[in-house]
Design a protein around this nucleic acid. Structure first.
Lengths: 126, 126
DNA sequence: TTAGACCTTAGAGTTAGGTGTAAGTCAATA
DNA sequence: TATTGACTTACACCTAACTCTAAGGTCTAA
């Protein structure tokens, strides 16, 4: 019988507001409703939401995620396009990983530099 | 005689608007002026801007960067606090690197999956 | 000596990505 | 049967981080 929006909010870590907002915006495909008109998510939705979160958390804009999801609705013929979008995004992620690693180093140097300044200061007034 | 805001914008990749905004907000310490009241950046400013960009691009909020910069003005006594802030941020960066790496894998699997679906589709209509 | 390029400030406007509110429906329960 | 709680929609509001505009000052080259 599917999951309520509350359950999905808990499972996904997104707020109910955000889930509704994503559906409105086409970031999520339109979710099935039960007899009362309440949203009724299934496991496929949950999986899609998990992918959407990953895309978002790795810096893909909502508008681009929307485009990706729109392709899902087109079936097999859109697979190459979907794959291309993911590959492009993968390039961004790899670049970000490199940038983050280089910056992690830079921060480490800065931390060491601060520590050495602190020691100098300590040595100056023993 | 220092660098103009235009030069710094070019060197840093930030817009002139953003540089003025950062100064207004206290993200940048107040920049020296020449006789005409025009901003006059030096190499130290440039270095600080580069650090600010790195902090920002690795996800530190403007408000937190501001706090970090405010400590710079307090001199030696604030060094341990500055170091602590950087160390905390470093933890975030390391977490992000791990998350990005795991997601890079997930995307790779997805790409492979899409490729296999494409091949199935091809096989079905030869 | 005026046109153009550069700068200044104060303050308004924009965008992305949510968040919150109001008014109403429905189903289970005291 | 009245209330409680979860849901619905439509729409208004919010925040962060810019981005732009207006009105004006200063310098330089033709």
């Amino acid at each position: 019988m599917g999951y309520s929006i509350k359950t999905i909010a808990q499972k996904s870590g997104l707020s109910q507001y955000t889930l509704r907002y994503y559906e409105r915006e086409g970031v999520l495909p339109v979710v099935a409703r039960d007899v009362n008109g309440n949203r009724c998510f299934d496991d496929e939705d949950l999986e899609l939401i998990s992918l959407i979160c990953c895309l978002k958390d790795t810096g893909m804009a909502i508008a681009d995620i929307k485009q990706f999801i729109a392709l899902s609705k087109e079936g097999v013929s859109a697979l190459p396009d979907q794959r291309r979008l993911l590959q492009e995004h993968k390039v961004h992620i790899d670049e970000k990983i490199k940038f983050f690693q280089s910056f992690a180093q830079k921060v480490d140097h800065k931390i060491a530099y601060f520590a050495s300044l602190e020691n100098e200061a300590k040595a100056a007034r023993p």
